[in-house]
Amino acid sequence: PRGRLSRWLADPAILVRLARLGSAVRAGYWLPTVARWLPGSSRLRRLATEIPGTPAHVSVPPRPAPVTADRGRVILFPGCVASVFDRDTLDAARILLGALGHEVAMPTVPVCCGALALHAGEVEAAARSAQATHSALRACDAETALVCSSGCLGSLRDHGMPGSTLRIDDVLAFLAADVRWPQLRFKTLTQRVAVHLPCTQMHVGSGKQPLLQLLASIPGLQLLVLPNQPGCCGAAGNYFIEQADHADRLRAEKLDQFGRQSADLLLTTNIGCRIFLGNGLRQRGARMAVLHPLALLARQLETQA
């Protein structure tokens, strides 16, 4: 049922179990066969075939001298879906913020921006989620909360915390504006990298300028920005489950654009887009990673000047 589905997708404990299920699907176990027994319009069948496994954690070699956290504390918002399926992005954000001297705090309880409930028209559920999230973020004792997934940013900033003095910011814009960013050094990467700009990144996030500015720090990288149209990859929260046929057509158009770029890697800033586009590439037989730009930056991070 639609209400149960929304609750599943906003519950990190259930998402961890679904991720294990997704890993079984990727490994070619029995689930795809069982899923084919379900009706073609079944949301459970769609979820079973589209749920991914969890990404590997990101790490970088230790630096000769630890960076002192002398810039104050910021909160990193993990989200619900992103806390499980975008954990490499959260690792990367901690690494980059730490390299710039920021102390990074994260909520000790599950938090959700409420976007999935809002998409489903469950306004009261979204409000309850927002209230709990606000309390959890306030307990971190910082004035700024940074969001990695552009899909969470608008819901958290514009709907989740009316009247709050807590600053909600796009982590890409925050990093790009940091005066110490030019002091960081990155290893050369001679690859063609395609950048997908999610609807949320362009309309409620910081746009493409901070993103491209940060990626330009990696020597040798050739950036290829996918065309703006079609604007949506088809994921759109839980739209890819509710309207599977239309979502698949939108995804196919985006993947066709990507194929024409002959790129080595695909980057996107929204966890929903990452999952959906990644599954589409896998279904086409392409062995290619879809990453958040922060994950690539953290992997290439070398040291401070």
Rank of each mutant, 00 (worst) to 15 (best):
Q222H: 15
P39A: 03
A173N: 10
V179L: 14
S41D: 13
R157F: 08
A93T: 02
G234C: 05
V109H: 10
S23F: 01
N279V: 04
R46T: 04
V171F: 11
Q300N: 06
P219E: 01
L5F: 01
R249G: 12
L291K: 09
G220Y: 11
L226N: 11
L221D: 08
R260I: 03
V84K: 07
Q229R: 13
L76N: 09
I51Y: 05
A286D: 05
P293C: 02
L116Q: 11
I218W: 01
S6L: 12
S6D: 11
E242G: 03
G79C: 00
R284I: 06
A56D: 13
R299L: 08
R2P: 09
R46C: 06
G72N: 05
L250Y: 00
A105T: 07
G234P: 10
R185A: 14
R282I: 03
G154W: 00
L197P: 12
A286C: 13
C199Q: 12
C113W: 01
A13G: 15
M161K: 01
H134T: 11
I14G: 02
L296Q: 03
T68K: 14
G40R: 15
R43K: 12
D169S: 15
C152E: 07
D91R: 05
F77I: 02
V16P: 09
K208L: 13
L31G: 11
I95T: 06
G285D: 04
G278Q: 06
R20Q: 14
G151I: 00
A139G: 10
E253A: 14
D158C: 09
H134C: 05
L44K: 10
Y29L: 15
D91A: 10
P219N: 06
G259K: 12
V179S: 10
A10V: 03
V74A: 01
A115K: 13
D256M: 13
D86K: 07
D248W: 15
L116R: 04
C232N: 11
Q243H: 15
T108M: 08
A145Y: 00
P66V: 00
G231Y: 08
L294Q: 04
L297T: 01
T190D: 15
A65I: 13
S129R: 13
I51F: 10
C273Y: 02
Y239P: 14
K187I: 02
K254M: 02
R249F: 10
A136D: 11
Q222I: 07
Q213K: 13
